[in-house]
């Protein structure tokens, strides 16, 4: 994390978010931690409790942003990978927001709209605890594959203009 912080202007920013003490809610954090451990050039991973306003400064210069979150009620074993756009109607506060609201703030503040995806990982247990359920653990593996695929595409594509 400390090394990642110093590497600015990453092409790809992976933002895993959730509560590390609420079992499967930490699944996004686990994905971000594994991405960070792999030290892929041009890729920075941020593991954060919530999507706070200052994250907009961290994602504004990226070509691709991948959010990873837990999702209750998702089909077991199947992660969802959705392209997302900025939304001005999603709720936003100083403490937390949705990925779409954060993208909206990034656009408003920095005139930047990075390509963004949301990976939703099936989660079944949000009770106090620091262990993932088997369902969430399987989701971590699938999410990592999705992150790698998205990063492959983004880093091979010609540079976008206007960012």
């Amino acid at each position: 994390m400390r090394a990642a912080l110093i590497r600015e202007h990453a092409e790809v920013v992976v933002v895993g978010y959730g509560n590390p003490l609420r079992s499967d809610d930490a699944v996004g954090l686990c994905v971000a931690a594994e991405v960070a451990r792999r030290h892929r050039p041009g890729v920075v991973a941020l593991a954060v409790p919530q999507l706070v306003p200052e994250l907009s400064a961290s994602i504004a210069t990226a070509r691709l942003v991948v959010f990873v979150d837990a999702r209750r009620g998702a089909v077991e074993g199947a992660i969802a990978v959705d392209r997302i756009e900025p939304s001005e109607t999603d709720p936003f506060s100083a403490h937390a927001s949705s990925p779409r609201a954060l993208l909206s703030m990034t656009r408003a503040l920095f005139d930047a709209t990075p390509e963004a995806w949301l990976i939703s990982v099936p989660a079944v247990n949000f009770k106090f605890g620091d262990q993932l359920s088997p369902t969430a653990r399987r989701g971590v593996d699938a999410a990592l594959v999705a992150v790698e695929t998205l990063a492959d595409v983004a880093t091979r594509a010609p540079a976008l203009t206007g960012l």
Binding site: M1, R2, L5, I6, P53, E54, S56, A57, S58, E88, F92, A94, M105, A108, L109, F110
Partner: peptide
Amino acid sequence: VFGLIAAEPELARGGIRLRQFGQEVIEL
């Protein structure tokens, strides 16, 4: 905060980055 961004974008952007600065020192 969105109204602030619309009216005073430089100040709003600076404020966001100032908070980020403090957070980064803590993280480092």
